[in-house]
Design a protein around this nucleic acid. Structure first.
Length: 484
RNA sequence: GCCCCCAUCGUCUAGAGGCCUAGGACGCCACCCUUUCAAGGUGGAGAUCACCGGUUCGAAUCCGGUUGGGGGCGCCA
């Protein structure tokens, strides 16, 4: 896997990494991570950190590459950051120049642009016209005198290139359409197509698994491989992850940053399971798989050819499944960053069983547990007296009922779920109210919300004093609101 | 414009010539359970397998074409 640190870890990059990981683990191979930071302008250490961190978070471990931002690499083919390998690229560029497989080109961007436009009006494939191939020594001397810096282009032989794609089968491309592409910038910094090929050879990469958007780059890479006399790896191009409109998933139309999903409370297990099934299935009706199980079952040959839309509803569903499958202790640990700091560890541990069944994302815990962390005043501000009234009930009736409830609860000698519930139910019966109607204003008064964790469990966590105080507060507000 | 790739319910997918009156899951709807919301259970709607033509006794599955969609055509990766 060769991510470029020109942005945070993208969902698509994560899925490609996952497939590389699963393939390597499945066949007992070596998973290599290389940082493609030849674009010095746009690559940053922060992006690299984000990529490595989130890959680790997903549980994808690699055998070779930089382990953490700033760390030393592991593996014997390093360095694994391209910015540290420029001397190797320069050597290979010289070699190509020497053999005549590559040449200098002094054309300016303006000149190239003009050629491109001309080709377009003639309905031809836009490609370099090879002008600098036929330069005289005098021309070269003139450019040197002007101290113009040339780029290096590969002389692409006009031949049909074939390769057998792991996923798509035989793919054919006419390299005559390619033109002589640039492999080293005028600044001397080599370009992506050139460096991947060199690194892949030197790092003894046997399988290149990448997004479908690279499929038309592959002929360029093969041309380079041949010019350099390298061994050709096996290529596999996996389908793209799509926006809802079926275009390539992009920041503009979708949420693409892995860290955003992470901070929204998605579990790495759910994300991995979800991503794995975007373009692959084990061919059975099972759908819940751990990373290990996926590695065991994964078959690169069964990967789909068509792209798949990123479906948030399905991710949510899977996340809920994984949350419910966690032990209470584990869930409490993972919930820590998502609940208000006012909720201490003991309370959190007792809260977990109440929350577990009703969470889609870890962030839901914040909403569901807010009533424990906020003051009585704040919680009271979440509702209005109208919210308290079940259909067809007057404020005076409800304040009376709340009073009955308050007294019944206050009489409980032990403040735990069962006695509280039976006290409340008997009170409802005595008044002739349906339990549901009776509980609604109590729930609002105690938790501040019409939707909350189970009512009596919530009361236990809140404690006797606060519960009764909130009930008293609600009764007073209702009395004030009710016409005398 | 040129090149490449793709095509099964709204979505993710099962499907490798007869097991398909096309299966599962998400989402949606209804009902059950129920102190709210979820979760869970049951059931339902939802796909003329993009279209046309071939091959075959038989095609979602093989072949050809059409249409539609996507990707790539940088001194980005």
């Amino acid at each position: 896997m060769a991510p470029s640190p020109t942005g945070p870890l993208h969902i698509g990059t994560a899925r490609t990494s996952l497939y590389n990981y699963l393939f390597a683990r499945h066949v007992g191979g070596t998973f290599v991570l290389r940082i493609e930071d030849t674009d010095l302008e746009r690559s940053t250490a922060d992006f690299e950190r984000d990529i490595l961190d989130n890959l680790h978070w997903l549980g994808l471990t690699w055998d070779e590459g930089p382990q953490h931002a700033g760390d030393e690499d592991i593996g014997s083919f390093g360095p694994y950051r391209q910015s540290l390998r420029f001397d190797r690229y320069a050597r290979e560029a010289d070699r190509l120049l020497q053999t005549g497989a590559a040449y200098h080109c002094w054309c300016t961007p303006e000149e190239l642009d003009a050629v491109r436009r001309e080709q377009e009006t003639r309905k031809e494939a836009p490609r370099y016209n090879g002008r600098c191939l036929s330069l005289t020594d005098a021309d070269r001397a003139r450019f040197d005198a002007e101290s113009r810096k040339p780029v290096i282009r590969l002389k692409v032989p006009p031949e049909t290139v074939r390769f057998d794609d792991l996923i798509r089968g035989p793919v054919e491309f006419d390299n005559a359409l390619l033109g002589d592409f640039v492999i080293v910038r005028s600044s001397g910094v080599p370009l992506y197509h050139f460096v991947v090929v060199i690194d892949d050879e030197q790092m003894e990469i046997t399988h290149v698994i990448r997004g479908e958007d690279h499929i038309s780059n592959t002929p360029k890479h093969i041309a380079l491989i041949r010019a350099l006399g390298y061994r050709e790896p096996v290529f596999g191009h996996i389908p793209l992850i799509l926006n809802p409109d079926r275009s390539k998933m992009s920041k503009r139309k979708s949420q693409t940053g892995m860290s955003e999903y992470r901070s929204e409370g998605y579990l790495p297990e759910a994300m991995v399971n979800f991503l794995a099934f975007l373009g692959w299935s084990p061919g059975t009706e099972e759908e819940i798989f751990s990373l290990e199980e996926l590695a065991e079952r994964f078959d690169i040959g069964q990967v789909h050819k068509a792209g798949a839309i990123f479906d948030r509803d399905r991710l949510d569903y899977l996340n809920g499944v994984y949350i419910r499958s966690l032990t209470d202790a584990d869930l409490a640990l993972r919930l820590r960053p998502f609940v208000p700091t006012g909720v201490d560890d003991t309370t959190l541990a007792r809260l977990v069983p109440l929350l577990k069944e009703r969470m889609v994302r870890l962030t839901d815990a914040g909403e569901l547990s807010g009533f424990l962390a906020e003051t009585d005043e704040v919680v009271a501000s979440w509702w209005s007296t109208d919210d308290l009234l079940p259909k067809g009930r007057e404020a005076s009736e409800v304040s009376g009922a709340l009073g009955v409830a308050r007294d019944a609860l206050a009489e409980c000698t032990t403040w735990s779920e069962e006695p509280l519930e039976s006290a409340a139910r008997s009170a409802a019966d005595a008044l002739g109210w349906k339990a549901g109607d009776f509980f609604r204003p109590i729930r609002l008064a105690v938790t501040g919300k019409p939707v909350s964790p189970p009512l009596f469990g919530s009361m236990v966590l809140l404690g006797r004093d606060a519960t009764l105080a909130r009930l008293d507060g609600a009764i007073q507000r209702l009395r004030a609101a009710a016409p005398a």
